[in-house]
Design a protein around this nucleic acid. Structure first.
Length: 874
RNA sequence: GCCCCCGUGGUGGAAUUGGUAGACACACGGGACUUAAAAUCCCUUGGGCGAAAGUCCGUGCCGGUUCGAGUCCGGCCGGGGGCACCA
């Protein structure tokens, strides 16, 4: 079945085998087979952009393809799928520009990606493709969302969000980088809008603690920890001097410093600002709030490094620890979104409070005495602000206590008096989950008034339909009227996107969907989900007047659970059957870029945990092992980009050197996780290697098996046989450890030795081709076929992975390095396992060693068996 | 500012738990084959001194631990990533 070319014609060989794999469905995932171990290899699925595959994709997919092919050869039941994360802004923006339907653009881009993936010879099961924009897929995205809704994890809030005038849409915090939009780098501003929000904070504790269950890069775990940002401390109540106003609640991680409080600060957006502002301060406070509101986050960030700003409210609070009267300030270095939006300021022991106190001439009271000299100036006085550890001073009743102890005691004592309690705070915010765009999943929600809600729910119940209703209804105010969120029945999913002529954002903050009146304003049947345009007659008495939710879900939605859908992508009864979920479980390895270290990977963990709580999935974590491949940079060491003109195109390399060479070279460039520049010069090296393999296997001119390859089982010289078994061992270990670059160099070493040998046994040549097969599958198949491998298995990919023979690995001799005083002086060859006395005697007898021992006294001898002998002499 | 990672030949990089630094490749140079070229094969290639044998130095810099440090510890310098007034 091999081609008939006589030299290594990859342009003929590669398409030949790709067609054969495709025609024979060689990579169709095997059925569930409890007798065989499963192995699930997952790539972060691509966004099918118009630009097509780039080298980074190739690197990512080559890594997983090698692993998948290896695990198949090891006898595992391998699931290795691919899909398309196809909702999203770039496609919609392109559709807006060209007047084409985003679906049409998506279909086209997906076709390009699929063709390119096949051209790099990746062994996906293309029958399991998922596409997040396919209604049969997003039906389940909507279903999961309804479960969140039912559990009370979805709510609506009018909140200031990032409004981007240029994109005409709202952006999530994560999409705003340095004060401009991540996509397009447009300026953004704050603007209040009605939004769906997911209560991810309810899972903060578990998202943090369950990180210990997963095998992930430490840096990624730490990024998630930092993002969740757990901090332990206390909420303390400071009575206000004007007792009619009640208490001011602050969050602090340092209750031990409460005796050092010399002022309070509340955020400009704090609800008590107006009440606390005295008439004489009114003007100044108003001016300050206006100024703070006008600042973008970028400006506030810049200011973080510089001067503090603020204004006194005119009011005072009372320190619950010592009854002292302290002024309440308003300053934007305190943010409303964290803790309580109010702090107790301890300038002696906090950098920011110190800077503020310096600027506004507020007293500084030291209450922590450093234990160590580092905290002190030359004269013994503590360097202020001092944020390190120590013992309390100037703290009535607590002075002398170590700070950790004082934290607990002060918190407990204040709690006993009803003036505080220990609490935990998180930086993690709830997840802003709606977009004012067309190209996303519509929310399966309609809005109705209170009376219609009750009627609709009653009708649905009477009809036997079950609605995923939360225990407390989700409401919002639209045009002055309270509206109730009514979920569509699960059976009526998917809720499809209506056809629309213009994808242009409305510019009002609403999605383009809001302009499709006949879809939005409807008569609605809560039991069936059936709708008729409100412009027409009411179809039946039980229909209620409703307005559809016009927001769509963010791109993250579809990518939060796609790894589950691969198990049974065509299942219309559930996400996947319990049997499939139990057998395949989660991916054994998940490979993708580190840019998803927090967002996607945190969101997907959140959804997975919700599904776990619902009993849908059997595991608490979705991705047990995670690997980030490094970015391939341009030749100039900069990020590849069109504007820089440093983009290397995979298609060009496939034409000039073949995809086997491209894959092998990408893997050979360096450690997979390292960021590395593309160096087109080195590609000749791996190409030469593959040609060398060809020449060792194929006779020149005839194209038949090379005459050097013979059938006698023991034809391979002993040292080459030993090297082969070492190579088998190392390549296997390196693949499993994702150290492909050293696996490849090991294979190169073997081929260099093979080249020098007179003969090699056929089975040994074939064993080597099996090692090569995951990396360069097309060449390996071709040579397997030409060298008679079909007597063992029809394709090299289906042959069982070669085992190494440990007996062959045992050497009869060993080389021992002899050092004198730690410096290498000689090497001696001795039989393996020679006793120490023999080694020492042989070493001393060696002329290069004795020369350095001459006239010296031997103080000590260290022998590391089989490796090194160090003689210390003076 | 805080947290994390990384600094090895002309280049990409290799080096189990501390145990021969520079594997494997690229590039440069020299040679063989050839009328010639390409391809292929062989040799050299960290630096200094030396004709050579050899010898000293050498993993960003300074210091430490150790019989022995690219690897461990402390302090710098440089590069990259993440977070950023989070109380």
């Amino acid at each position: 079945m091999a081609t008939n070319c006589t030299d290594y014609d990859f342009l003929q060989i590669e398409p030949h085998w790709q067609k054969l794999w495709s025609d024979s469905a060689a990579f169709r995932t095997p059925a569930i087979d409890p007798s065989k171990p499963k192995y699930y290899v997952l790539d972060m699925f691509p966004y099918p952009s118009g630009a097509g595959l780039h080298l980074g994709h190739c690197e990512n997919y080559a890594i997983t393809d090698i692993l998948a092919r290896y695990q198949r050869a090891k006898g595992k039941n391998v699931l290795y799928p691919i899909g398309w994360d196809a909702f999203g802004l770039p496609t919609e923006n392109y559709a807006v520009k060209t007047g084409r339907h985003p679906r049409e653009v998506t279909v086209e881009n997906v076709a390009t990606f699929r063709r390119q993936l096949k051209a790099i010879g990746v062994s996906y099961d293309f029958e399991r493709e998922v596409d997040t924009t396919d209604p049969r897929y997003f039906r389940w995205t909507q279903w999961i969302w309804l479960q969140l809704f039912k559990k009370g994890l979805a709510y609506v809030e009018e909140k200031p969000v990032w409004w981007c005038p240029a994109l005409g849409t709202v952006l999530a915090n994560e999409e705003v980088i340095d004060g401009v939009s991540e996509v397009g780098k447009h300026p953004v501003e704050r603007r209040p809008l009605r939004q769906w929000v997911l209560r991810i904070t309810a899972y903060a504790e578990r998202l943090l603690s369950d990180l210990k269950l997963v095998d992930w890069p430490d840096s990624t775990k730490r990024m998630q920890e930092a993002w969740i940002g757990r901090s332990e401390g206390a909420e303390l109540l400071f009575a206000l001097e004007n007792s009619a106003l009640g208490d001011l609640k602050v969050f602090t991680t340092r209750p031990d410093t409460v005796f050092g409080v010399t002022f309070m600060v509340i955020a400009p957006e704090h609800p008590l600002v107006d009440a606390l502002t005295t008439p004489s301060q009114r003007e100044a406070v108003a001016a300050y709030r206006k100024q703070a509101a006008a600042k973008s986050d970028l400006e506030r960030t810049d200011l973080a490094k510089g001067e503090k700003t603020g204004v006194w409210s005119g009011s005072f609070a009372i320190n619950p620890a010592n009854g002292q009267k302290i002024p309440v300030w308003i300053a934007d270095y305190v943010i409303m979104g964290y803790g309580t939006g109010a702090i107790m300021a301890v300038p002696a022991h906090d950098d920011r409070d110190y800077a503020f106190a310096q600027k506004f001439n507020i007293p500084v009271i030291q209450v922590i005495e450093p234990d160590h000299a580092e905290g002190r100036n030359g004269n013994g006085a503590p360097k202020l602000p001092y944020t390190g550890d120590g013992r309390l001073v100037h703290s009535d009743g607590y002075s002398g206590l170590p700070w950790e102890q004082a934290k607990k005691k002060i918190t407990a004592d204040l709690a006993a008096r009803g003036r505080g309690q220990a609490t935990v705070n998180f930086k993690l915010r709830d997840w802003l989950f709606s977009r004012q765009r067309y190209w996303g999943e519509p929310f399966p929600i309609v809005w109705v008034n209170e009376a219609d809600y009750a009627a609709a729910v009653a009708h649905a119940k009477a009809s036997g339909a079950s609605l995923p209703l939360p225990s407390a209804p989700v409401t919002c105010v639209i045009d002055g009227e309270t509206r109730y969120a009514l979920p569509v029945p699960e059976q009526s999913l998917p809720l499809q996107l209506p056809e629309v002529k213009s994808y242009q954002p409305t510019g009002t903050g609403e999605s383009p969907l809001a302009a499709i009146t006949e879809w939005v304003d409807i008569w609605y049947d809560a039991a069936t989900g059936h709708a008729a345009p409100a412009s027409g007659a009411k179809p039946a008495a039980h229909y209620v007047s409703a307005r559809r939710e016009t927001n769509t879900m963010p791109q993250w939605a579809g990518s939060c659970w796609y790894y589950l859908r691969y198990l049974e992508p065509k299942n219309d009864a559930s996400i996947a059957s319990p049997e499939a979920l139990k057998y395949w479980g989660g991916p054994d390895i998940y490979v993708g870029g580190a840019e998803h270290a927090v967002l996607h990977l945190l969101y997907a963990r959140f959804w997975h945990k919700v599904l776990f709580d619902l009993g849908v999935v059997p595991t608490p974590e979705p991705f047990t092992r995670l690997f980030h491949q490094g970015i391939i940079l341009g030749e100039d060491g900069e990020k590849m980009s069109k504007s820089r003109g440093n983009v290397a195109n995979p298609d060009d390399i496939i034409k000039s050197h073949g995809t086997d060479t491209l894959r092998l070279y990408l893997m050979f460039l360096g450690p997979l996780e390292a960021m590395k520049p593309w160096n087109p010069n080195g590609i000749e090296g791996v190409h030469r290697f593959l040609q060398k393999v060809w020449r060792e296997c194929v006779e020149r001119d005839t194209g038949a098996t090379h005459p050097k390859i013979v059938d006698e089982a023991d034809a391979t010289p002993a040292d080459l046989a030993k090297l082969l078994h070492e190579t088998i061992k190392k390549v296997g270990e390196d693949i499993e450890g994702l150290r492909y670059n050293t696996a490849i160099s090991t294979m190169m070493i073997f081929v260099n030795a093979w080249q020098k040998a007179e003969r090699i046994a056929r089975r040994d040549a074939l064993a080597f081709l099996q090692l090569l097969a995951p990396f360069a599958p097309h060449l390996a198949e071709e040579l397997w076929s030409r060298c008679g491998g079909q007597a063992i298995a029809s394709t090299v990919g289906t042959a069982p992975w070669p085992a190494f023979d440990p007996v062959k690995l045992v050497a009869t001799e060993q080389k021992i390095v002899v050092q004198v005083c730690g410096k290498k002086r000689a090497e001696i060859i001795l039989p393996t396992g020679a006793p120490e006395e023999v080694v020492i005697a042989a070493a001393k007898a060696h002329s290069d060693v004795s020369a350095f021992l001459n006239g010296k006294e031997i103080k000590r001898i260290i022998y590391i068996p089989g490796k090194i002998l160090n003689i210390v002499a003076t």
